[in-house]
């Protein structure tokens, strides 16, 4: 069975129970915190390692998260450990954030440019994207700079990509010039 089904279910149930108790926001924050912690190599190794007993893992969770996360989240961690699914925790958390965004109709947009953009530029882009009605959902723009694209910009909305960078234009020109019919066989 595909793992996707598994972490999909765990994430869904955690969201639903948090919603019922009106603690969704704090659960989301907790999930983000967990993902931060999971970046620590020792911690992620501990999750994956089957040699460590469940009790030990629970103790570690207690030491790290006690008091910092809400009650539901704490119980959720215990449940996953009991079901031997703690390996999937990072994936479950990612899925949880995704599902939360889907539920609230938030669209992630990644913007890549060659130079740092001033805030007003991003605000303008946000407005024009909304006007262009590419999506009428709420927009969350994650902008980053990448010198290798030389100039222009690349916008990615989920699966769709608008590539208006100098790098890709140069690549297109390269492709037309180095077409097979222009290669002379000696």
């Amino acid at each position: 069975m595909s793992l996707h089904k598994i972490y999909n279910r765990y994430a869904k149930s955690l969201i639903e129970i948090s919603q019922d108790r009106g603690e969704l926001e704090s659960t989301i924050e907790n999930a983000k915190l967990f993902l931060e912690v999971a970046k620590v190599r020792d911690f992620s190794n501990l999750l994956k390692n089957p040699v460590f007993k469940s009790e030990l893992k629970l103790k570690v969770f207690d030491a790290i998260f006690k008091g910092k996360v809400n009650e539901i989240f704490e119980k959720f961690l215990v449940l996953t450990v009991k079901k031997n699914r703690e390996v999937l925790l990072p994936e479950i958390m990612k899925e949880l954030l995704l599902q939360n965004k889907k539920m609230k109709k938030i669209t992630d947009i990644s913007l890549t440019t060659a130079v740092d953009l001033p805030e007003e530029f991003i605000a303008k882009l946000r407005a024009s994207l909304r006007n262009a009605s590419i999506t009428d959902d709420n927009i969350e723009i994650a902008s980053k700079t990448d010198k290798s694209i030389i100039g222009g910009f690349v916008i990615q909305v989920e699966d769709k990509l608008i590539d208006s960078s100098i790098k890709s234009k140069l690549k297109k020109i390269e492709k037309t010039i180095i077409d097979e019919k222009h290669i002379r066989v000696i």
Binding site: K160, L161, K169, K172, T176
Partner: peptide, 30 residues
């Protein structure tokens, strides 16, 4: 040739490679 190149940015659909090996690629998205 450069004149013939389309300079208008087109809407593309993209995905990301999850894993690749043995001549098989698993792709997320698309």
């Amino acid at each position: 040739q450069i004149a013939g190149t389309k300079s208008v940015a087109e809407l593309e659909e993209v995905g990301t490679v999850l894993q690749v090996g043995d001549g098989i690629a698993r792709i997320y998205g698309l």
